[in-house]
């Protein structure tokens, strides 16, 4: 059974169509990288997975639960789907450990001690245990993004969504974040990652999806995609991005 099943979704902003009949599946334990030029709809697509962006047609089924179904308890579903954002989106008025525990206690109903223990354990895992009582504004971008990943993991997610997790980072901080993500992939986490980091894709992705103008143009295994992408647009994109 696929963990994430995107079924023919289309989305419009007023008259403007941003997604056109997109379909794909992510199996349990699979790592799928979504790439494409800016404005191609990849960020919108990944936000449809946990219903952060509403869509007008089609459906997304996560672990057997329909996102489009009005009867679905979306907060409950989202609590099980981890998400990491381009701009980290840590809550600036809470300490690092506060960021890691708030949803555990208020959403999952865990006790304060249990939540804290879990939070510290995850901070240790991303190498930031010493910063637990600092505030987000006191950390570097790379550190903040690692905290954001730990925050998502604290909810014991069944799968993780990454929306351009490294594109707001200074170049020297990109690797510390990618390392954490590679670790996660190797442990068998189901991941859907919007990124331009082709090195990451080569290393851990099982499949690569290429999007352009709101459509999924290519959906292939890593080997096939990097070997001989079929569409001209994907070839152009790859040649541009791999030039350096």
């Amino acid at each position: 059974m696929s963990m994430i099943d995107i079924r023919n979704i289309s989305k419009w902003y007023g008259q403007f169509q941003v997604l056109t009949d997109c379909s794909t599946q992510v199996k349990q334990g699979e790592v799928v990288v979504v790439c494409g030029p800016s404005g191609s709809g990849k960020s919108t697509l990944i936000k449809c997975v946990n219903g952060l962006e509403p869509f007008q047609k089609g459906d997304v089924v996560v672990n057997g639960i329909s996102v489009a179904d009005a009867k679905t308890d979306l907060p409950k579903l989202r609590a099980r789907v981890g998400m990491v954002f381009q701009h980290f989106e840590l809550f600036p008025h809470m300490s690092i450990i506060g960021n890691l525990t708030i949803a555990q206690t208020k959403v999952l109903g865990r006790g304060a001690d249990e939540a804290r223990e879990r939070g510290i354990k995850l901070l240790d895992r991303v190498g930031l245990k010493a910063h637990a009582s600092k505030f987000p504004g006191e950390l570097s971008g790379g550190q903040q993004q690692r905290v954001a990943i730990a925050r998502a993991l604290a909810m014991d997610p069944i799968c993780m969504l990454f929306d351009e997790p490294t594109s707001a980072l200074d170049p020297e901080m990109i690797n510390e974040v990618l390392d954490v993500m590679v670790e996660l992939a190797k442990e068998g986490m189901t991941m859907m990652v919007v990124t331009h980091e082709m090195g990451f894709a080569r290393k851990v992705a099982h499949r690569v999806i290429f999007m352009d103008a709101g459509q999924i143009v290519e959906d292939a295994t890593k080997e096939a995609f990097f070997g001989q992408p079929r569409s001209e647009r994907a070839q152009q994109f790859l040649s541009k991005i791999l030039q350096h």
Partner: peptide, 21 residues
């Protein structure tokens, strides 16, 4: 930033909780 609301919702907070916390 708009992402703050998104991040909060993505963690499973309801809209009232998002405002509150």
């Amino acid at each position: 930033p708009r992402g703050q609301k998104m991040a909060s919702l993505a963690m499973g907070f309801t809209l009232p909780q998002t405002y509150r916390y």
